[in-house]
Design a binder for these strands. Structure first.
Lengths: 141, 141
DNA sequence: GAAACTAGTCAGGTAACCTGAATACTCTTC
DNA sequence: GAAGAGTATTCAGGTTACCTGACTAGTTTC
């Protein structure tokens, strides 16, 4: 731990430390969920999204996404409605409780961002974001 | 995707993009392995390590670690030897091939670090490391 | 030298994915 | 306007990467 880490390990550690706190924050706010559920909450649109669309965005099979959605239905965060524009499809839409959970997530992330700013300073945080953006732009397709 | 990402997502994306390339590089160099095997390679000491020690460092149960080690034994990367200093224990030690695989990993990481430097510049890379170090020091225990 | 502890193993279980095949509806295209 | 091609979802079963619990065999402590 005290040894000089390579940059990649540092990125990984920073991510897992902070990412862990997101779910923790949302759960702590009274909206229990599993880490994988964030994949749905992060992608679902306010008007409702199709299963296949969610699956594609979360980079998983529709079958796996269906299972996640089933769990969220059981927990009362979303419901399945027929899609008026396509008889084959169903829309996954957030319930009131679901929208509240998303809002709690947004607030938690905001809090973590503030925490990062507190540690690095306004300038440092901006600098970090700039460097990461550059890195992602270059590495990504 | 085009939207402004929060800092945490950026950290996660950067990590998974780069981390993925480590295993890819080692496998490409002729040392096939599964992503989870890195947990062993990263922790094992040159004189050999005990199973429980590896498990603790990788934050998993000894049983799970034993399974990983079994696979690595099958692949010829490590062997189990009785620990002379404790009759209950066995030492997991790298074979020649195992040491070569670790070396290939080291070189791959070095190459990725160079890639980061090429993207961000010498100064940018140093800055990134400084910010991440600060973040980790403050967030960690 | 018996009791309490530690290292490792064996058996069985679960979560989070996956592939392949079926069903139900929609959209051509002729 | 029905056949064929395509899309959305579901059903069945498999794999991987972990886990818990129970056990054996050495070790330390009093």
């Amino acid at each position: 731990m005290a040894k000089t880490l390579n940059t990649i390990s540092m990125l990984g550690q920073a991510y897992s430390l902070l990412g862990f706190q997101i779910v923790e924050g949302v759960v702590g706010a009274g909206y229990p969920q599993k880490p994988k559920h964030s994949a749905v909450f992060a992608q679902i649109s306010l008007e409702g999204s199709r299963l296949t669309e969610l699956a594609r965005k979360a980079d998983m099979t529709p079958q796996s996404m269906a299972e996640l959605v089933d769990e969220l239905v059981d927990m009362g965060y979303v419901v399945r409605q027929p899609d008026p524009s396509d008889g084959r499809a169903k829309l996954i839409v957030l319930t009131d409780r679901g929208r509240q959970a998303v809002e709690a997530g947004r607030r938690t992330i905001e809090g973590l961002e503030d925490q990062v700013t507190a540690i690095l300073g306004e300038h440092g945080h901006r600098q970090l974001r700039r460097l990461l953006t550059k890195l992602l732009d270059a590495t990504n397709t």
